[in-house]
Write a protein that binds this DNA or RNA. Structure first.
Lengths: 213, 213, 213, 213
DNA sequence: CGTTAATCGAGACGGTACGTCCTGTCTTCGG
DNA sequence: CCGAAGACAGGACGTACCGTCTCGATTAACG
């Protein structure tokens, strides 16, 4: 899983690599050090590889042997925070969407948010970074897609629904809120539920609804 | 206006400062150099002050005399891209929302998007950065707030509408799309219009609508 | 003089270089730091540029701005130790030779010897290093050459003397002694005088001398 | 012989060591690799143990199992170049001295010279290095000492000769020439013979010789 | 019209971090 | 137990920027 972003995966085959195997403890210690340093308020360019190495009790070369640059390391640190897709009850579409959407932007608390926002500039430029990012998001997007399609079948959602658009409508506001801190006036209480309900019901009033959309 | 973020405003009073006045050409050249370098694919930490100085044909001290650090400079560059709030026809709420929302994430094309995403990491930590960011957004948020309240009065929008939530619902998906490149499968054609219409109408189907929300 | 080995001489012409001029204090501090560290027992590869920079209270870049590598720096440090050619009385050839030869290998004490021996490996490979080395030695070789030629004229030396060979005969043994520590059994008292006298008189005995050479 | 400098001689006793015996091929390959790399223009600190290991087709540990550091390895490489003391005819002192002295500084050609000059900096500081160096030189110094003493007895040399000084007078100039490249103007043809003859006869002229020395 | 003073370009300064390379040790495997 | 292979902690390399500083040269307004 992580190996995708590793500089050189140690063992793609069953073939045992010669020489001393890489230390699993070092892997952990490095990623932990990154997360600690970020949690302590470092930004992506305040965070130095040398500080990571020192904190992890590891030589710099041990880091560079695994990741080719700082971004790859941060990405893996980000990936390590992504928990599993939460299990869905499968009864109410609204309930399942809420389950999925409640985790947006707060999967592992502030850490994931911070690391994610650190990586955003890279997303604009690096195709590989985008690929990794999508690989992380895809499982939970697939889950949401399935819920939405189920909703169309059960009549809980409009039959002409654009599924991909709906996913963006549901996740986008919460991402903007958490990562971009888009609107400081927005009441934070029950935000996921309020977003889901509003997107389901629409914000249009009687005058508009009469005419349809 | 810019002077807020300047290291030392040259003339707070009417009193004319003695000595040679600062060159306006340098100001321009520096900001232009920043924008050029970002447009050429630099990220926020690939972009070095020395490169900016070289590109602008300016000494480093001339930059530091105006901005105290790289972030302040980037922020001003960002601010310089923000155009005026677009004029609204004031007839249809849907039309005005579309006018406002069409510019989200693409105000001055790719440049604003790139610079904005570069600044996001700082937004997580710096209060002053957040303040500046909000100062830039506030005018167009005020405009949108006004449109939404008008919509409530005219019956085009629900009378119980949470205005701040609605703003996030309208802008968030487009921000997520442009800045986070959230969903690559999403059809890009007419996206602002489709977002506005879907948010207005809601995605809930007959089964759900019967029950209300 | 030093400028020969400098990476980029700051002012070859009368034209004043633009920008802040290089600090003469840094020049001194760096060379002094090198000499101190060598005197404290460092060898050429124990001596790190970083240690030199730290000792001199100077950034590494300030060193690399002046010298392109460690050897060039060591060479300049060596050059800085070479004092002036000692003044000669001009009466007795033996006396003048002794004056010249007494300084061989101990010009500025142990420091010059140590630095010189550090540079020897480079002498084997670098033509520029050889050039600099010769440039340092040449003045005192010229002086010795003159003394030897005067000796031939006055009859103090053999009329058929090979001057260059004689210089090597006089200096070589002392160099070998000081730099190569060639013969630990050799009595060190009055060594320069004993060398000069033995070279003047020859070591051949009556049996050999009869036959000439 | 070499074992003196080895990190751990595998079998000082008659006791046969258990396990796989060390490979003699590895010993050779390592020393050869050192000599090759030096011959290719490496200096003592350009030459890395890793390069030696790669060239020799050997693991680094195999080197460190035999030599404790780079200097010990270089010293052994140097020792391996030292041929036997050449046989002496024993008739003419001049002839025997010439035989001994002709090899000075050119025993195995350029390689010994280069390695020797690489080791000189270490000679200044390491007592063990000095010991090893002397151990290599001693046999040929003993031979020369014997020749000189024979010369005193036969009257070919002065009866009051300082033997140790004479050895330095004979070897020093050639060492200085070969290792220090002391005097580029010196005619190289027949240099050993010219040195021996000049040292035997002395460079003093009639005026000086009259007074004696 | 010369003085004054802050500006300009240029670039050196003390530092920090980069990413690479090497040292000497270690840990795995196969012979 | 030796062998190669190669990972390990550590540390120096030479480069690139940081933000500050010092130059000589402009460029106004003030006196």
């Amino acid at each position: 899983m992580d190996a995708v972003t590793h500089a050189a995966a140690p063992a793609d085959q069953d073939r045992k690599a010669p020489g001393r195997p890489r230390s699993a403890r070092a892997d952990e210690a490095i990623v932990d050090a990154v997360l600690d340093l970020l949690a302590e308020g470092n930004s992506v360019d305040t965070l130095s590889i040398e500080a990571v190495a020192a904190r992890a009790g590891v030589g710099k070369a041990t880091i560079y042997r695994r990741w080719s640059n700082k971004e790859a390391l941060l990405l893996d640190a980000f990936v390590s925070l992504k928990g599993a897709v939460p299990p869905l009850r499968g009864e109410s579409v609204r309930e399942d969407l809420l389950t999925l959407v409640s985790r947006v932007g707060q999967n592992a608390g502030i850490r994931a948010t911070r690391i994610m926002s650190c990586l955003l500039p890279e997303l604009q430029r690096s195709k590989t970074m985008q690929g990794c990012f999508q690989a992380v998001l895809e499982p939970r997007r697939a889950a949401m897609r399935e819920v939405l399609q189920r909703g169309i079948r059960t009549g809980e959602l409009r039959p002409d629904l654009d599924v991909e658009l709906a996913m963006t409508l549901l996740s986008g506001p919460l991402l903007a809120h958490h990562i971009l801190q888009f609107n400081p006036r927005l009441e934070k209480r029950d935000l996921p539920a309020r977003v889901v309900d509003a997107v389901l019901a629409g914000i249009g009033g009687p005058a508009l609804r009469a005419g349809g959309a």
